[in-house]
């Protein structure tokens, strides 16, 4: 993969990371979008779509309410697609999931660090804020967005680097059945996470019946195709 492509992926991952919290929250941070566009950038939409769907299932495990801490799957999916594309072939899905999950965990931790840094900046500007100085307010806000942008860039770069490392050490190191096991584990875990997360959201009662109707309908369509 050329340096140009890596830089474009880095820029895309940064935008995706910014969209998660800082704004505009138009859902390019959703794995479905982040992964597909990363695939398109690499000229490998199929790999992009597969990992986008896989991480979208992991995303269903998260309900971003209040101040809850959660993994960040946007830049993670970009890194996953990059790793899977470079290790073309069947190793792609399992390797991509491995790189993406670690990057997602790092992304979640980095959000916590940025929020603490923001809190410190607010404390330092306490008197000016209480005096109602709009310039201080805007400077604080811009500082927060810049910090989040830097955070997203670092997380994406970490993921892309991890992809290079994993490729170097894992490709060729696993026999074919090992590769198949890795893929089965990745897809199985994603589907389990997606189902459990959705059921937590659905709860009991009438909504559960709608969910069951959807599962039956989806199963029939999947069987007929």
């Amino acid at each position: 993969m050329t340096l140009d492509l890596q830089l474009v992926l880095l820029a895309w991952g940064t935008l995706v990371g910014l969209d998660l919290v800082s704004g505009p929250q138009m859902m390019i941070a959703r794995p479905l979008v982040a992964g597909t566009v990363a695939g398109a950038i690499l000229g490998d939409v199929w790999t992009g779509l597969q990992l986008a769907v896989l991480f979208e299932l992991f995303q269903y495990d998260i309900l971003p309410v209040g101040a809850v801490r959660y993994p960040e799957y946007g830049p993670a999916t970009v890194a996953a697609v990059s790793a899977a594309h470079a290790a073309a072939g069947t190793l792609g899905l399992g390797l991509g999931a491995f790189v993406g999950l670690i990057t997602g965990m790092a992304g979640g931790m980095s959000l916590h660090v940025v929020r603490r840094l923001n809190a410190r900046a607010v404390q330092r500007s306490g008197p000016a804020l209480e005096a109602g100085d709009p310039r201080v307010l805007e400077r604080l806000h811009a500082g927060g967005i810049l910090r989040d942008g830097a955070r997203a860039a670092v997380v994406t770069a970490l993921g892309l680097g991890l992809g290079q490392l994993a490729r170097a050490y894992l490709v060729g190191g696993l026999p074919p059945h090992g590769v198949a096991l890795l893929n089965v584990a990745a897809v199985g875990a994603a589907l389990a996470a997606g189902t459990a997360g959705t059921l937590r959201l659905v709860g009991r009662g009438a909504t559960l019946r709608w969910f069951a109707a959807g599962v039956v309908g989806g199963t029939i369509v999947a069987w007929l195709r």
């Binding site: 769907v53 299932l57 269903y60 589907l191 997606g194 189902t195 959705t198 659905v202 909504t207 559960l208 709608w210 969910f211 069951a212 109707a213 959807g214 599962v215 309908g217 989806g218 199963t219 369509v221 999947a222």
Partner: peptide, 11 residues
């Protein structure tokens, strides 16, 4: 619930 329920077997 209906949409995600339908999506799970398909994906």
């Amino acid at each position: 619930a209906l949409a995600v329920g339908a999506a799970l077997p398909l994906v």
